[in-house]
């Protein structure tokens, strides 16, 4: 059974329909990506999945129908979102940001300290800057902090919204390397990206979204060779 299944979800802002009848699945341990142009409704899809905006349809996570649960309950179940804007606590230290990442956990301070150690060894830069305010970090470091903070919740599924947005190419590559390595820890990932090539190279399965609807889906290997996608999204191959 899939870890996350989104069934016939639609999101509207007034009369404008941002997401129309979208269904997708993420299996345990899988990295799945949703690619598509700006305004395709990718962010609305993720935001509705976590319960921050109202939507019609059904969302099932880990065998439980979570459609009517508030966001905070979904997070306690191990379902996390790293939003496009990162939403860090800019006036607080890196350490405090990470600590709050574990707010929904109930497994004691020793386990939380161990997770903190794990995050620091995965992102040594964060350890160096642990007393620094989050607002003073560079763009790449902020993304690392946003990822690290989400990992502190010990999620089963991590949804990442445009993790490469606004980052230099070299840092983008580093972030994708980290995302691929997260996969080894057993966490499933739903990755939303405009950087289609990098996303398909990282994921095993992909969906293509256009104007609120899923227009293609398939394994990353087939999508990456699909001539229609190459023409529209993948271009000459540069990141």
């Amino acid at each position: 059974m899939a870890l996350l299944s989104i069934e016939n979800v639609s999101v509207s802002y007034g009369k404008a329909e941002a997401v129309r009848n979208v269904s997708l699945e993420v299996d345990r341990g899988q990295i799945v990506t949703v690619i598509g142009p700006n305004g395709a409704g990718k962010t609305s899809l993720l935001t509705s999945a976590i319960g921050m905006i109202p939507a019609s349809g059904r969302v099932v996570f880990d065998g439980v129908d979570i459609t009517s649960l508030p966001t905070e309950d979904r997070i306690e179940m191990g379902f996390c979102l790293v939003p496009e804007r990162r939403e860090l606590f800019s006036e607080m230290s890196v350490y405090d940001n990470l600590l709050l990442g574990a707010y929904s956990r109930r497994d004691g301070s020793a386990a939380i300290r161990a997770s903190m150690e794990e995050v620091y060894s995965r992102f040594p830069r964060l350890r160096e800057r642990h007393t620094q305010k989050a607002g003073t970090l560079s763009g790449g470091e902020r993304q690392m902090l946003a990822l690290g903070r989400a990992l502190m919740a010990k999620p089963k599924l991590l949804m990442l919204d445009e993790p490469s947005l606004g980052l230099a190419p070299l840092i983008t590559r580093e972030i994708f390397r980290i995302i691929a390595s997260l996969h080894e820890t057993g966490v499933s990932i739903l990755l939303v990206e405009q950087n289609a090539r990098a996303a398909l190279e990282t994921a095993s399965f992909g969906y293509v979204m256009e104007t609120g609807e899923i227009v293609h889906s398939g394994s990353s290997a087939t999508l990456i060779d699909d001539p229609r996608l190459i023409a529209t999204y993948l271009g000459g191959g540069a990141h």
Binding site: I50, P70, E87, L88, F89, L99, L100, Y103, R149, A153
Partner: peptide, 23 residues
Amino acid sequence: TLTGKALHATALNRTGARLMGIR
């Protein structure tokens, strides 16, 4: 205290706080 920090976090960024599971 974690509760104090959670309150501070809510004041700084409501969306961010909700995404951490702070009600």
